[in-house]
């Protein structure tokens, strides 16, 4: 007897008809389950929200007065005709994969995920399922990350080199997740860490929920290259090259993102240095994560979906694509999005 699948793909996003909810929907719905606080996943306008306890503070900070219920990792909750639970995705603090069980089937929606532990995010846990809906932002074999410790060593060498020459170092990174991961990874003995307002606000929210981060100082009025020579400034990419950044004089600029693996992107960005550091799984991470679910059917979303699906089919999976809505403007300061590569958001 043919019946409706557990999850369907609609123009508002991934829908669970049996449970009466959507996951990370991009248009207003009555009930939304949110994987994490990045703005391409947690959007305003829904009737009710459900997210992990650790993701909630940032979502509230961003979306203001919303009806938000929280759930602990691993806690099972009945919604409509299905049972849902949230599991660590290792992407940013509080990020989750969402498991849906109903009618004898288990589906998992990965949200954004990263398999390498970063010391701040709850480490990724594979969840067994029949059908896995996986992001594949970096789903090409050209994307393979070095361990975080190696990147941190490069970052420290760059910062220390600039500091020795009396230059400020400005590092472009997304305000939620990447920025905190960087400040926790660098060596604070090299010099003071300054932040742009957007980064400082998110950092304060994370500190308030008990995440330990090194001291930072908001680079407001009166803070510049003279008051803090040799400082490391962490700012959203959009702040680089603005009058705000000009106060740091002839600073050395860098950008930390998975896209920095490509020389063409590095050069187009025009930033002096590119550090290859991503909050998404790399090629090997995606493949090992998919294998670990034991799923036979995989739907891919975000990124090089057509290529990655073909690869999965070659590997014997029943593979499909979740169409996402490409926005006209993808310039979202919070997303790990390259404007030239739509559908590659954080």
């Amino acid at each position: 007897m043919p019946s409706e699948p557990l999850l369907t793909f609609t123009d508002r996003g991934i829908c669970c008809p049996r449970g009466g909810f959507f996951i990370d929907p991009w248009r207003p719905v009555d009930r939304a389950l949110i994987t994490h606080g990045h703005s391409d996943h947690a959007r305003p306008g829904h009737g009710a929200y459900l997210a992990t306890v650790a993701a909630a503070p940032v979502i509230r900070h961003r979306l203001g007065a919303i009806r938000l219920d929280t759930i602990a990792y691993g806690e099972r909750r009945r919604i409509g005709g299905v049972t849902v639970s949230f599991h660590p995705a290792g992407h940013v603090p509080g990020s989750a994969q969402i498991r849906i069980e109903g009618a004898g089937e288990v589906w998992v929606v990965s949200g954004d995920y990263k398999t390498e532990p970063d010391t701040l995010s709850e480490p990724f846990e594979p969840v067994a399922c029949h059908t896995f809906i996986s992001e594949c932002t970096f789903g090409l074999p050209v994307f393979r990350w070095q361990p975080q410790a190696a990147i941190a060593a490069d970052l420290n060498a760059w910062w220390a080199g600039n500091a020795a020459e009396g230059r400020v170092s400005i590092l472009g990174a997304y305000a939620l997740g990447k920025a905190q991961r960087l400040m926790a990874a660098v060596d604070p003995a090299i010099g003071p860490i300054l932040t742009h307002g957007a980064v400082e606000a998110t950092t304060a929210v994370l500190r308030a929920q008990g995440i330990t981060l090194p001291p930072t100082r908001h680079a407001g009025a009166g803070i510049d290259a003279k008051s803090h020579p040799g400082a490391l400034v962490i700012a959203p990419p959009s702040a680089l090259g603005t009058p705000w950044a000009a106060r740091f004089g002839p600073a050395s600029e860098a950008f930390a993102s998975g896209w920095m693996a490509l020389r063409g992107v590095r050069r187009r960005r025009g930033h002096g240095r590119g550090f290859v550091l991503s909050d998404h799984a790399d090629w090997d991470g995606l493949n090992s994560a998919i294998r670990a679910t034991g799923a036979e059917r995989v739907f891919v979303t975000h990124g090089y979906t057509a290529i990655f699906r073909r690869w999965l089919e070659d590997q014997g999976y029943d593979a499909g694509i979740v169409a996402t809505e490409y926005q006209g403007e993808t310039a979202d300061a919070e997303a790990e999005s390259d404007p030239a590569l739509p559908g590659t958001m954080e």
Binding site: L140, P141, V142, R263, I307, R310, W311
Partner: peptide, 26 residues
């Protein structure tokens, strides 16, 4: 050498934009 199908290397090339770099990366 990378244990990948040739079609996949070919798909990567225009995205990376440079064959030498594509090969170095895979």
């Amino acid at each position: 050498a990378a244990g990948l199908p040739v079609w996949l290397a070919e798909e990567c090339h225009p995205i990376v934009g440079d064959l030498a770099e594509t090969i170095a990366l895979i």
